[in-house]
Every structure is written in structure tokens, then in C-alpha cells.
Design a protein around this nucleic acid. Structure first.
Length: 482
RNA sequence: UCCGAGGUAGCUCAAUGAUGGAGCAACCGGCUGUUAACCGGUAGGUUGUAGGUUCGAAUCCUACUCGGGGAGCCA
């Protein structure tokens, strides 16, 4: 028994005369020669039935491959009437011979000798064989993976996740799982989801009506993580090259197609390295992931190119070949000022770049991914390394057409005195960061890292315009159904 | 959170102050190679909720609610 086959359920036919192991549609396409003109068995779900008086066709999808398998059946089946009335969504088991198809739309088809109904669907099955809007499909998130689009999205998601691990593992990075429950407010930025076991109705409060968290589960205030970065830095300064890949939570009341309250983030961190190495890593990583997906999900990417975004293949192909652009914040301001564009928000040194500015730079001016570096320290986080000019930090954002900011990173401030000073300037409590400061005290080294929004990468990879359509069960403000 | 546009049959949409329709899905029937199959028929509605204007409201007004777009925050 092969390693793969042992996971497949062996199913016997009704008479128990011979045993056929269920094969997958993926195998049929991969090794057509092994199966053609032979008896096979397939499990799957009915996408549609086209029935005539004495014969009919079933589009069967078994979840392993993008395309359906066409099943041909006729009145020789003992349950012909039942099969002709099968409702979309029903699960069946089909045994028969795989033959070349006379139809133009598929290379082969299954001539059914026996069809067993595993689970009937119902007349009110919400998925039809016509196009549905993504908005409607979000209301049936438990059924949408059965559609072409979401089948493609989540296969790409799985392959992309694998590609991320493959890239880092093959480049000697150590995969670190940082905590999801955290006692530190990582960046002092953004609202966090509180984690507590306190009973709201019987919570002890002190004279100032403040909640007494010493009575809580952890004996202190805890939240869901907004970033694994600080913890990743700790492991970076032990393993030299590390990465995290896990869920992240932000309680911001963001209502946009690019934000979710729960999303996945990839956060590499490299020691004895600066911003240049950081950008190089980001570019190599993105190119690897995209190449890997292009190679391993050709049907899915072609589907997106046909039905979601006509320029997808061209854009992804170009990205893999081209060099990312790289400009400083200063240069970005110059470009915007000289652009002649009428922007709604002013362009001035010391003001942050607005979405419209970022879009102009990456979509119109360069037409490809752009690193923007060295922002004024005022609108960046405390841990970013201060540049020699004393007013900018070694930060970088990667902007890509269509999605916007996909990566945010920086060289970290490794100089203990600078870091302490910065904490003070921002009114952050030094004691809260004692262990983070220790990393600088005990053999600190220059290091850098970035955060990649996994869902934003998927949007870029698939052309899907809304983050809610690249997460299985999206969590957004006022929405945690399923 | 702010700004502007929406919610009509299971789905996608018509109907702009006067008897709420179509396509698809469902259900019944027909059809010997279909492929978003095709042909005929049946059923399906308190027009998001509440209130108001009017002789009369899906249509005009107000509030709420839901989904989405733009902005802010960011990945």
C-alpha cells in the first residue's frame, strides 16, 4: 500500500465480489494512462445533473482537483430514476469504467455501472450552478468551499502556506511559534482583544472602579497578540534567522476590503542584518511564493485570470522577473509633488502617505511593487532604528498594485540607550519592556524583520478584491458567524 | 468611527406615486451525447424593520438594521 493510498477509504461493491479502492480526480488527471479503460471508483459531490429519458450526465467534484469528472449513466442502473433526480450537492459513490470522452470539454469520463447515494442533498440547497455574488456566498461560508472560486482560493491558500514554510526552511530559518495570548501590548498600537475569565457581573473593582486583574486567570491583564515580533526578536538573537507564521488579532473597527479582526501573518527576523538585507529577503520570499504557486496551481491561477482578474497572470509573471523598485520616503514625496496629480490629501514632508499617494506610486508611477524606506520617526513604531539624520527611521513598507501595503518592516533599534530614550519619548513604560530591553543588554546585535499579511498576499495572488473571500470564516466588526 | 449609494421571490435583477414581473433554482412532464443542456407547465411576495406623508407608497420623509463601496487605522 502506498503512503498516499492508506488514507483512502476502501469501499466494497454491493455484492462484495470485488474491491475497488476509491481514486481521486487528481490522480486521474495526473496518471491518466493508469486508469483509462479500467474500472475505477470515485467518491464526490454532485455539481449538476443533466438527465434525458434514458441516460444522463453528472458533473462530479471530489474536492481533489479543480475540474469536475463527467459521469455518464443510463437506464441499465437499477436506481436510474433516483439518480436522474439527484439534487445538486448530494454525495455519491460511482463505480465504472474510465473511457475517453467523445465530448470536447473533457479528456475522459466515467461510464457508471453502479452509483450509490451516500448523502442526499435537499431542494433548498443554497448553491446553484449559476454564478453567485461573493456577498451572498459569505452568508453561506460553510458551503462556499464547494464552489469553483472558493475551491481555487483555498487550494492556493494551502499551497502558498506550504511555500512559505518551504522557503524559510530551505534557507535555514527556524520556525518559532510565538504566544497567541500575550501580557504585553506589543507596539502600543491598535486596540486589542482582552482575554479574561473574570465574571462580568461579579468582577471586583477598586476604589477607582478599575478592574482588579490580579484576580484574573493570569493575575494580570492579557490580550490576544497583535504581532509576534517582539518574541520573534528574542529567538532571532539566539537562532540568527527565525520566522513566525500564525494568527494575529486586531480589535480595530476597520471596515474595508483589506482588514480583518483575525488574520495570519508571517514575520521573519534576521540577526546581523540591516534594512537592505531585510528588503532583499522580502523580495526573494515573495518571488519564491509566487513562483511556487504559479507552478503548482496552474488551473486555479488560470481560472482567476479568466473570471476574476484578466491581468493576473501577466502581473504575477512580471513580478517574478522584475526587480522591485526602491525609494526613500523623501523621494516618494518628491515624486508625488512632481506628479501633477490632484490629491485629496496634501503632500508635505512630515505628513504620512495616504492610500491615494501609495496607489499613485505603486500603480501609476512604477506599475510594480515598490519599497518605500526611511520614514519620519513620528509615524512609526518605537522599536524602529533611528537613522543618522536623527529624524527618520530604518523602516520599509512594500506597496503592491491593487492591494496596497502588503509588507511592513524595519531594522530594529539595537542600541539600548536609543531604545530607552525612544520609549520615554513615547510615554511607554520601560518596566513593561524589561525583557525586550534585556535583548539589547546581553549581546545585542543589529537585526531586522518584517510582517507579511498572508491574506493580502493571497489577494495579490488570486486577484480576489476582498479579504473576507480569502479567509475560510472571516471575522470582521459585527461579524463572527460560523 | 466618518462620508456617499443600497436592501423587491431561494439566487440575480426589472417595476419611480396607481392591479409587483423576468431569468435561473425548486416541483411536474417531455427529450438517445449533454456540458451554466434544451422544451412545456406549476408553485413561490406583509417589497429589511418601525413610524410618518398621501385618496393611494416597493417608489416620498425619519429612525433603526443588515450587506457592500470610499476614507481613517494597518498587515
Amino acid at each position: 500500500m502506498t503512503g498516499k493510498a492508506k488514507y483512502l477509504q476502501a469501499i466494497y461493491d454491493q455484492e462484495g465480489e470485488h474491491q475497488l479502492e476509491a481514486v481521486t480526480v487528481k490522480d486521474l488527471h495526473a496518471q491518466k494512462g493508469n486508469y483509462l479503460n479500467k474500472k475505477i471508483q470515485i467518491n464526490g459531490w454532485v455539481r449538476t445533473v443533466r438527465s434525458s429519458k434514458t441516460f444522463g450526465f453528472i458533473e462530479l467534484n471530489d474536492g481533489t482537483f479543480f475540474s469536475n469528472l463527467q459521469v455518464v449513466y443510463d437506464e441499465k442502473l437499477t436506481n436510474f430514476q433516483e439518480i436522474s433526480k439527484l439534487i445538486t450537492g448530494s454525495s455519491i459513490n460511482v463505480a465504472g469504467e474510465l473511457v475517453e470522452s467523445p465530448g470536447a470539454k473533457q479528456p475522459f469520463e466515467l461510464k457508471a455501472e453502479r452509483i450509490e447515494v451516500e448523502g442526499l442533498s435537499a431542494p433548498d440547497y443554497p448553491l446553484q450552478k449559476k454564478r453567485h455574488t461573493f456577498e451572498y456566498l459569505r452568508t453561506i461560508a460553510h458551503l462556499r468551499p464547494r464552489t469553483n472560486t472558493f475551491s481555487a482560493v483555498f487550494r492556493v491558500r494551502s499551497v502558498a502556506a506550504y511555500a512559505i514554510h518551504k522557503f524559510f526552511q530551505e534557507n535555514d530559518f527556524v520556525y518559532v511559534q510565538t504566544p497567541i495570548i500575550t501580557g504585553s501590548d506589543a507596539e502600543g498600537a491598535g486596540d486589542m482583544f482582552r482575554v479574561t475569565t473574570l465574571d462580568f457581573d461579579r468582577t471586583r473593582r477598586d476604589e477607582k472602579k478599575a478592574v482588579d486583574f490580579t484576580k484574573d486567570f493570569f493575575g494580570k491583564e492579557t490580550n490576544l497578540t497583535v504581532s509576534g515580533q517582539l518574541e520573534a526578536e528574542s529567538y532571532c538573537l539566539a537562532f540568527k534567522k527565525v520566522y513566525t507564521f500564525g494568527p494575529t488579532f486586531r480589535a480595530e473597527n476597520s471596515n474595508t476590503p483589506r482588514h480583518a479582526a483575525e488574520f495570519w501573518m508571517v514575520e521573519p527576523e534576521i540577526a546581523f542584518a540591516g534594512l537592505k538585507e531585510d528588503m532583499h529577503l522580502a523580495e526573494e520570499m515573495l518571488k519564491f511564493i509566487i513562483s511556487y504557486v504559479l507552478e503548482h496551481c496552474p488551473e486555479e491561477i488560470q481560472f482567476f485570470n479568466n473570471f476574476v482578474d484578466k491581468l493576473l497572470l501577466e502581473r504575477l509573471g512580471n513580478l517574478v522577473k522584475s526587480e522591485f523598485a526602491q525609494i526613500t520616503y523623501n523621494e516618494a514625496i518628491e515624486i508625488l509633488k512632481k506628479s501633477g496629480e490632484q490629491f485629496e490629501y496634501p503632500v508635505e514632508w512630515g505628513l504620512d502617505l495616504q492610500t491615494e499617494h501609495e496607489r499613485y506610486i505603486t500603480e501609476k508611477h512604477f506599475g510594480k511593487p515598490v519599497f518605500v524606506t526611511d520614514y519620519p520617526k513620528e509615524f512609526k513604531a518605537f522599536y524602529m532604528r533611528l537613522n543618522d539624520d536623527g529624524r527618520t527611521v530604518a523602516a520599509m513598507d512594500l506597496l503592491v498594485p491593487g492591494v496596497g501595503e502588503i509588507i511592513g518592516g524595519s531594522q530594529r533599534e539595537e542600541r539600548l540607550d536609543y531604545l530607552k530614550k525612544r520609549l520615554g519619548e513615547l510615554g511607554l513604560n520601560r518596566e513593561d519592556y524589561w525583557w525586550y530591553l534585556d535583548l539589547r543588554k546581553y549581546g545585542g546585535a543589529p537585526h531586522a524583520g518584517f510582517g507579511l499579511g498572508f491574506e493580502r498576499l493571497l489577494m495579490y495572488l488570486t486577484g480576489m478584491a476582498n479579504i473576507r473571500d480569502v479567509i475560510s470564516f472571516p471575522r470582521t466588526p459585527k461579524n463572527a458567524e460560523f
